[in-house]
Every structure is written in structure tokens, then in C-alpha cells.
Lab assay of single mutants.
Amino acid sequence: MPEGSASLQLAVGDRVVYPNQGVCRVSAIDVKEVAGQKLTFVTMRREEDGAVVMVPEGKVLAIGVRKVASAE
């Protein structure tokens, strides 16, 4: 991610809310080559049905992904 860009610090195992998809758990953060460029992807699995969603790390905030609020 370019320096100075806002990002959401995620780790494998974090629970997040993905708008219009529901609650997901981060299952992987991997670098993949797409069209000759190396990009970091956040892979999330929906808790409702296990569907897998992959989002480029740089788009996580723009999409509206946020961490699940704690009970505290």
C-alpha cells in the first residue's frame, strides 16, 4: 500500500463487517500476482454460509469493511 494511505490493520482471525455481505472472518492475507503486478489481498470467509470474498488490501476501507465492535 502506498505510504501515507489510510488502511485498516487486519490480521488473520479478525472478525469484520463487510457491507451487504455480513460478518466475515479474515482467513488469509496473501500477495498474489495479477496482470504482472504483485498485490496484497485480504481473504475473508462469511460466517453465515462460508462464502469466500477476496479484496485488494488497498480497497478495504473504500468498500467500507470495518472491525466488529467489541462488547466493551
Score class of each variant (00 low, 15 high):
M1F: 11
M1C: 02
M1G: 13
P2E: 12
P2N: 12
P2Y: 07
P2H: 13
G4C: 05
S5L: 12
S5C: 04
A6E: 11
A6G: 13
A6V: 12
A6T: 11
S7T: 13
S7P: 12
S7C: 02
S7I: 13
L8H: 10
L8R: 09
L8Y: 08
Q9R: 13
A11N: 10
A11C: 03
V12A: 02
G13H: 02
D14Y: 01
R15T: 09
R15S: 05
V16M: 03
V16L: 09
V17A: 06
Y18L: 14
Y18M: 14
Q21E: 09
G22V: 05
V23K: 03
R25M: 12
R25E: 08
V26D: 00
V26N: 00
S27C: 01
S27V: 15
S27Q: 13
S27M: 15
S27A: 10
I29T: 01
I29F: 06
D30T: 14
V31K: 05
V31M: 07
V31T: 10
V34G: 03
A35C: 05
A35I: 03
G36F: 02
Q37Y: 06
L39T: 09
L39E: 09
L39D: 05
L39Q: 09
T40W: 08
V42F: 06
T43H: 06
T43E: 08
T43W: 09
M44C: 05
R46E: 02
E48D: 09
E48Q: 10
E48M: 11
D49Y: 02
D49L: 02
G50S: 04
A51D: 05
A51H: 09
A51E: 09
V52C: 03
V53D: 02
V53F: 15
M54Q: 09
V55L: 14
P56H: 07
P56V: 13
E57H: 10
G58Q: 11
G58N: 15
K59P: 07
K59Y: 14
V60L: 15
L61W: 07
L61M: 10
A62F: 06
I63K: 08
I63Q: 11
G64N: 07
V65M: 09
V65T: 05
R66S: 10
R66D: 07
R66G: 07
K67M: 12
K67N: 05
V68K: 06
V68N: 05
V68Y: 06
V68M: 10
A69G: 13
A69H: 10
S70T: 11
S70P: 13
A71W: 08
A71E: 12
A71P: 12
